[in-house]
């Protein structure tokens, strides 16, 4: 359900008084409605569904899974039984 694709805003403008933007999806560009993400700025990434940006991507949060995996790597073995709390990555 609900195909949503990340893209980078390269330009913003208003059309019929609604905030719009041109978004780069890895080399193809599409005009997207930004009115649901008024905080979106040029250079930021947004998740786009049926021509609408749903959310601005939080770059810090985006990295957490990889930090978690790095942490597991650093532990060496998963089954060497570190205390469970250390593996918490909940927000």
């Amino acid at each position: 359900m609900c195909l949503g694709i990340p893209g980078k805003i390269v330009q913003t403008y208003r059309e019929h008084d609604v905030l719009m933007g041109k978004v780069d999806f890895g080399g193809i560009f599409k005009l997207v409605c930004l009115s649901l993400t008024p905080e979106a700025e040029v250079g930021r990434y947004v998740v786009v569904h049926v021509g609408f940006a749903l959310q601005v991507i939080d770059e810090t949060e985006a990295n957490k899974v990889f930090e978690f995996l790095q942490y597991m790597d650093d532990l060496g073995e998963l089954d060497d039984g570190g205390p469970d709390e250390e593996m918490e990555i909940q927000p």
Binding site: G4, S35, L36, T37, P38, V47, L54, Q55, I57, D58, E59, E61, A62, K64, D84, Q90, P91
Partner: peptide, 26 residues
């Protein structure tokens, strides 16, 4: 496994607890 109940957010890069206020308003 831990018998915990509640909501966790794996997709935090695109999901905030309150969602999108602009979208919900519309």
């Amino acid at each position: 496994e831990q018998g915990r109940v509640g909501v966790d957010n794996q997709y935090a890069r695109a999901v905030r607890r309150g969602g999108s206020p602009s979208a919900r308003g519309l």
